[in-house]
Amino acid sequence: MASPEFATALNMKRSSMSPRTLFSSVMTVITFVCAALALIPLVAVLSYVLINGASSFRLSVFTQLPPAPGLTGGGFGNALVGTFLTVGIASLLSIPFGVLAAIFLAEFYRDTKLAETINFLTNVLSGVPSIVIGAFAYAFVVLATGTFSAVAGGFALAVLMLPTIVRTATESLESVPRDFRQAAIGLGATRFQTTVQIVLPAAIPAIITGVMLALARAAGETAPILFTASTSRYWVRSVWEPTATMARLVFDFATAPYKSQQELAWVGSLVLVALVLVTSILSRWIVRKR
């Protein structure tokens, strides 16, 4: 039996004006507004990039050199090549490094103190600001070789990508069912054989999606490139000279006073955004399919 202390509990009728109901409705509206507020900048950024980028888009932007200040036309062919080059160098450095480290963490030392420590350091590394990584690469490569270069840029991007690759590769390897390994080991395979012939092939699709996402992000990174790869107005001839990249070009031309350069900055942004969008959607689609 209800005691009088709980008099309010006796009315079961709904009243839309009670403070509790009102509070609930207000809070619900607030969360809806928050969600809308979060989506506005996304829509705004994407639509501006799409509209401004597409309106100045010509196929020749992919094949021509940047215009001299004040001139119209031109493109960013050299920067596109430069981006592929630096990202390629970064991949060569970071993918083997990261995947091997992940094999150790997921296959050989899983759930140990050592693995936990390295995972911790990996997470900390992924939090190091990209501009600091740029400064490190500047000291490590640019000062040592005496020149800005695609190698220096690639090195900086490699450090940047490393934690992502280690993490995605570790997760992919860990998600390979234990049965696979036990079956292989039960057949007398060594750990090397088990890993290389059974586990790695099973994890490869997931690793590739993770690596693709990391690459797409790296292609858009500007801060580590600024004073490592630097920039150039010419086509790449060697990996040991200053190299133009898309991200750097967008930065330079965004802050340039000339209309034709600003237009190229928008087109360049469109290319960078398309790159991340396509890889994100693609990788999501691959993950969904499996």
Partner: peptide, 21 residues
Amino acid sequence: FLIELLAAIPSVVYGLWGIFV
């Protein structure tokens, strides 16, 4: 997914959008 995409847009693109919009 859309909100996660916000995190994937390169920072230099935000900068460009910041300057002109």
